[in-house]
């Protein structure tokens, strides 16, 4: 009976597996093969020479990688610190108000990221909404707030806010109130409850939120382009240049593979630390 069940399970999974193979694995495979082709090759059948990988180290692309990871890391930490109290309140304290906040945050996703960032550009630029109004009413203005690293981080935090908030809320919802009360009854301090009860129990939500925010921010481009004025060049920018103006698909593919491998390693490490099934409401027996 078990064997039959297994066979049925494999059969039912077959369509989605085939779909994943065709639409998810195949493009990755093509990128992987392109990445080992000779420079400027547009064919997948040339003799592999791995030259693009050596170029990454010779031509300073590690600097762009560094910036991508630093920006992603900083924005993820800020997002976590910002979202934790709000997610906590949404999961534990607010009742109907949670729905209002949820709708407000989700509605912002209906507008394209570029348009939202352009809104911030018009708000923050010299002569924009803030500086322009200030200068109009006080006679004193200031240099615009754009084109620096902090504003890129601000952009990332703004754009990826929902991707941290909702998983975190889900994670916090899994903390049983009884467990917290028991800890307090046994004399635990607020700090101890946070560190030893709340954070470990909300870990699946924290991991999902952190991974989503980090992965998306590491591949983000619009924030550094629009708000940051490309003060720093991120790896996604180099990938775009290699595929377009550089017309060097192997180099673009190698840079993509580098980012994919780093992010995959971080994701596998993160996921292996927690039981993701719990957040899906399907505790493993």
């Amino acid at each position: 009976m078990d064997r039959l069940n297994k066979r049925i399970a494999y059969l039912s999974a077959a369509p989605i597996l085939i779909l994943l193979l065709v639409f998810f694995v195949a493009p990755l495979l093509v990128i992987g093969i392109y990445s080992i082709m000779p420079q400027k090759s547009f064919s997948l059948l040339a003799m592999p020479d791995f030259s693009s990988y050596s170029l990454i180290f010779v031509e300073g692309y590690l600097k762009s990688l560094f910036w991508s990871l630093v920006l992603a890391f900083s924005s993820t930490v800020i997002l976590f610190l910002l979202c934790w109290p709000l997610a906590y309140a949404m999961a534990k304290i607010f009742n109907r108000f949670t729905l209002i906040i949820t709708i407000a945050v989700v509605v912002s996703l209906f507008v394209s990221e570029n348009i939202r960032l352009f809104g911030w550009l018009l708000t923050l630029m010299k002569g924009g909404l803030i500086e322009g109004l200030l200068r109009h009413y006080t006679g004193n203005g200031f240099e615009g707030a754009l084109y620096n690293v902090p504003i890129i981080i601000f952009g990332l935090v703004y754009v990826y806010f929902p991707f941290m908030l909702f998983p975190l809320m889900q994670g916090i919802a899994m903390i049983a109130e009884d467990t917290r009360q028991a800890a307090f009854d046994l004399g635990a301090t607020r700090w101890q409850v946070l560190r030893e009860i709340e954070l470990p129990l909300a870990a699946p939500g924290i991991v999902v939120g952190t991974l989503l925010s980090f992965v998306l921010a590491a591949g983000a481009l619009a924030e550094s382009k629009l708000l940051g004025g490309q003060t720093v060049i991120v790896l996604a920018d180099d990938i775009e240049t290699a595929f377009t103006y550089g017309q060097n698909w192997p180099l673009g593919s190698a840079l993509s593979m580098l980012l994919i491998m780093i992010i995959a390693t971080i994701a596998v490490f993160g996921i292996s630390r927690v039981d993701i099934d719990t957040i899906m409401g399907r505790k493993r027996s």
């Binding site: 630029m125 002569g127 615009g144 754009l146 629009l226 490309q230």
Partner: peptide
């Protein structure tokens, strides 16, 4: 350079607003 962008609208805005 003070700023880099590949968006001509953003660039014209920066020019008109005195950035």
């Amino acid at each position: 350079a003070k700023m880099l962008t590949d968006d001509l609208v953003a660039m014209n805005l920066a020019l008109i607003n005195g950035e």
